[in-house]
């Protein structure tokens, strides 16, 4: 609509059809909003109803079993803990290094920085299943041949969350005002001293929030692990990086595909646990974000 058309339509300001259209438009917006809210509500309520009967302390403490009555998720919980913490720790370290290098040690207009930035944006848009292919070809089989172990799953998920982590940590570093750095330089500090003593502490809340979001992505991811070769039955906690394992999303996937109603209950109960873990992580991120809202 050009400006003249707009003005022309406005001249007819009291027409009932206009008001009618306004109401209709607002209704459409409400419907869109309701779609999102209803989805969330139905999903949560539906899961809670089917999972309620299976949720108990035993469900968390027991190991998977061929019999649904005494199945539990302990090994999946510990498997998720191992895989998520490992990939979170490794990807955070690498992301921090990359972000510091790009933000503090390279010129923002340099070709190198633009190249790496575009590269990371590209990686962030790669579907997770493609990381599964990478893991399958390089880690599980091929050069590394680690098999389907904690180590190979952690390596695959590390590669997957790394781009997100880098973007988040870079944003956190960017948010630290230049004046802080310049003050440090003025006092005679080197670049690394400035980064280590001034920039990183100031950026800590941002980094923490970003890495929590990255970790929650790794915690909920299933697709690449399905491709790596999900095991049907692992009834013990991981013992090391070369150990067999299962994780919560794989457990849910496995149970979701079963046809008997008992398994549907188990899947729903495991979903409740997974969602609670994710909400807790998100809540921590939000608290950190709100508490540390420093105005520079």
């Amino acid at each position: 609509m050009t400006t003249t058309e707009l003005v022309a339509s406005l001249s007819d300001s009291t027409s009932p059809s206009r008001r009618y259209k306004d109401t209709l438009f607002l209704t459409v917006l409400w419907v869109s909003l309701l779609l999102a809210l209803l989805t969330l509500a139905t999903l949560v309520i539906n899961t809670l109803i089917s999972g309620a009967s299976s949720l108990s302390w035993n469900f968390i403490a027991f190991f998977p079993s061929p019999f649904p009555e005494d199945s539990g998720i302990q090994s999946a919980l510990f498997g998720s803990l191992w895989v998520t913490l490992t990939s979170g720790f490794v990807s955070l370290s690498v992301a921090l290094g990359t972000a510091i290098y790009l933000e503090e040690f390279t010129n923002p207009n340099s070709r190198l920085q633009r190249f790496i930035t575009v590269n990371i944006q590209t990686l962030a848009g790669v579907p997770s299943i493609v990381y599964g292919i990478l893991g399958l070809a390089f880690v599980v089989r091929g050069p590394l041949s680690w098999g389907f172990t904690v180590g190979s799953a952690a390596a695959t998920l590390t590669m997957m969350v790394l781009p997100l982590m880098i973007v988040a940590t870079r944003e956190a570093l960017k948010a630290v005002p230049p004046s802080l750095r310049e003050g440090s330089y003025a006092l005679g500090a080197t670049r690394w001293q400035t980064v280590y003593r001034q920039v990183l502490p100031a950026a800590r809340p941002g980094i923490a929030t970003g890495s929590i979001l990255g970790v929650s992505r790794a915690l909920g991811e299933s697709a690449p692990l399905i491709l790596l070769g999900a095991l049907a039955y692992v009834s013990y906690n991981p013992t090391g990086f070369d150990s067999d394992f299962t994780v919560l999303p794989l457990m849910i996937f496995k149970w979701a595909t079963e046809v008997q109603d008992e398994y549907r209950g188990l899947a729903a109960a495991a979903i409740v646990v997974l969602l609670l873990l994710l909400f807790a992580l998100n809540a921590v991120a939000i608290i950190i974000r709100d508490r540390s809202r420093i105005r520079w």
Partner: peptide
């Protein structure tokens, strides 16, 4: 899987927590 479950239960009871671990793919 049933055999693995029973075997794990049996070995755990003999060896404390350090039972034999069986993964079935």
């Amino acid at each position: 899987t049933v055999a693995a479950k029973y075997f794990e239960t049996a070995t755990k009871s003999v060896n404390g927590k350090k039972g034999v671990k069986v993964a079935v793919g």
